[in-house]
Amino acid sequence: MTRAPDAPHPDLSAVPDAELLRLDHQVCFSLHAASRAFGGFYRQALKDLGLTYSQYLVMLVLWEDGPQPVKAIGRRLHLDSGTLSPLLKRLEAAGLVRRERSREDERSVLIELTHEGARLRDRALSVPRGVLAATGLSLDEVLGLQKVLGRLTNALGKTADAG
């Protein structure tokens, strides 16, 4: 059931039922297995930084975009505030971020890097280089994979939103 990226969509009615339910033909399982492998890699790669993968993602947003309201971080990472709030509290306890109520809107909490959080960026530069090396893929292959996964995420998000 695999096909070239530019090949036309297969007529699934032509695929035998026994083939449709094979585990190794499930895209979701391939993504799940890859996600678990990445999780294991990132646990090791981030250990020296003292970050979990989710904390690393928050730090990436802050390093890239600067101070952000919690809601903006949640939108960017596709995380709800119930997941994000405890994570931000742990980053604050570690001295990497500061949480401050917005002066304009008391309901909004602004997250900004501390000096220590900003300095951690230099040490984190080794992580993406290590990921690329660990994948065994070329930079072009990784960028192509990101593009395909972005299209997949958008398509499935639209399907979920419509349902």
Results as ranks from 00 to 15, higher is better:
Q55T: 04
Y56V: 02
L57C: 12
L57G: 02
L57I: 01
M59P: 01
M59I: 03
M59C: 07
M59W: 04
M59S: 05
L60V: 15
L60S: 13
L60P: 00
L60D: 11
L60F: 13
V61S: 09
V61R: 08
L62A: 11
W63A: 02
W63C: 05
E64P: 00
E64Y: 14
E64L: 14
E64D: 14
D65T: 10
D65M: 14
G66I: 07
G66L: 11
P67K: 08
Q68C: 14
Q68A: 14
Q68K: 09
P69W: 00
P69R: 06
V70F: 00
K71P: 00
K71M: 11
K71D: 13
K71F: 07
A72K: 08
A72I: 07
I73G: 02
G74D: 01
G74P: 00
G74E: 02
G74A: 10
R75E: 15
R75C: 07
R75Q: 15
R75M: 09
R75P: 01
R75F: 12
R76W: 05
R76D: 04
L77M: 10
H78E: 11
H78P: 00
H78C: 10
L79D: 06
L79T: 04
D80E: 13
D80Q: 10
D80F: 11
D80M: 08
D80G: 12
S81I: 13
S81Q: 15
S81H: 15
G82V: 09
T83P: 00
T83G: 07
T83Q: 11
T83D: 05
L84A: 06
L84C: 05
L84Q: 02
S85P: 02
S85Y: 11
P86V: 05
P86S: 06
P86C: 08
P86M: 06
L87W: 05
L87S: 03
L87C: 07
L88N: 01
L88F: 05
R90W: 03
R90V: 08
L91N: 00
L91C: 06
L91S: 02
L91M: 05
E92Q: 11
E92S: 10
E92D: 11
A93I: 04
A93W: 04
A93P: 00
A93G: 09
A93E: 12
A94Y: 01
A94R: 13
A94N: 11
G95C: 09
G95Q: 05
G95A: 02
G95E: 08
G95N: 08
G95Y: 05
L96D: 00
L96M: 01
V97N: 00
V97D: 01
R98F: 05
R98G: 04
R98D: 08
R98I: 07
R98K: 14
R98M: 12
R99G: 03
R99L: 13
E100H: 10
E100D: 07
E100S: 13
E100P: 03
R101C: 06
R101K: 12
R101E: 09
S102E: 09
S102N: 09
S102Q: 07
S102G: 12
R103W: 04
R103A: 12
D105Y: 08
D105L: 13
